Simulated assay, not measured.
Amino acid sequence: MTSESLHPAPAPARRTVVAAVGAAGLAVALSACGADDNASDTVGSDNGAAGNAGGTELAKTSDIPEGGGKVFADQGVVVTQPTAGTFKAFSSKCTHMGCAVKGIANGVINCPCHHSEFSATDGSVKRPATSALAAKTITVEGDSIMLA
């Protein structure tokens, strides 16, 4: 028997173990946040998948009520028609706490989480969020609304 087998290597200090666990947890948290951010950047990334040069068809113009709109959750976009024949698009992710907006009524885009409200005309804040909804690019081709 050698003296090494009688004296095992010392265990790492408690401070070292706590620091390692904290660093691993931070790496996991940052990876999760990064993945979520990347997902929101891919809105409309499948442009042309249906063979349309103008992008992905979201809806027909008749699907979007005047003074209202419609949320397209899978694409992360909300399309509004503030006045007859005028169509606007914005990110459906509320700038207040990141929830998805749900409804559009009387010219206002509503978020159910903390009751933030945004203008259906330009995405500007009505209350309590502090940043406007990001504009998205759409085109109207005939009676089709296309996400660019």
Results as ranks from 00 to 15, higher is better:
Q81V: 03
V101C: 02
K88L: 04
A24W: 09
N106D: 15
V78T: 04
S62Q: 11
M97L: 11
D122R: 03
G55T: 08
G76Q: 07
E66F: 04
L133I: 01
T121G: 08
T121S: 14
D46F: 15
S131F: 06
G51W: 00
G22I: 11
E57R: 13
G85L: 05
G107D: 09
G85R: 05
S91D: 05
A39T: 12
E141M: 00
G55C: 10
S116A: 11
V101R: 00
A59H: 07
E57W: 01
V101K: 01
A20I: 09
C33V: 14
V17E: 11
A23R: 13
C111F: 00
C113S: 07
K93Y: 05
D122C: 03
G107H: 09
P82D: 07
V17S: 10
R15W: 13
D36I: 10
A89D: 04
T61Q: 08
G98L: 05
S124D: 08
T2K: 11
G123T: 03
F90M: 05
R14E: 14
A13I: 08
K70F: 08
M1A: 15
A89H: 04
L133F: 01
S144C: 00
E66P: 04
T80C: 09
L30A: 15
A73T: 14
R127Y: 01
N110T: 12
A49D: 11
G123Y: 02
D37G: 14
G103V: 07
T2H: 10
G25Q: 13
S144A: 04
V101N: 03
C111T: 04
T42Y: 09
E117F: 01
D143G: 00
D46E: 15
K102S: 11
D41M: 10
G107A: 10
A24V: 11
T130P: 02
C113A: 11
G85D: 07
M97F: 05
P12K: 12
F72Y: 12
V79E: 02
A100H: 04
T137M: 00
T16E: 12
A132L: 01
A19I: 09
I109M: 05
A135K: 06
K136I: 00
K88A: 06
T61G: 08
S3R: 12
T130A: 10
A9S: 15
G142T: 02
I138V: 06
K102N: 09
T56N: 10
F90T: 03
S92R: 03
T2R: 13
S40A: 09
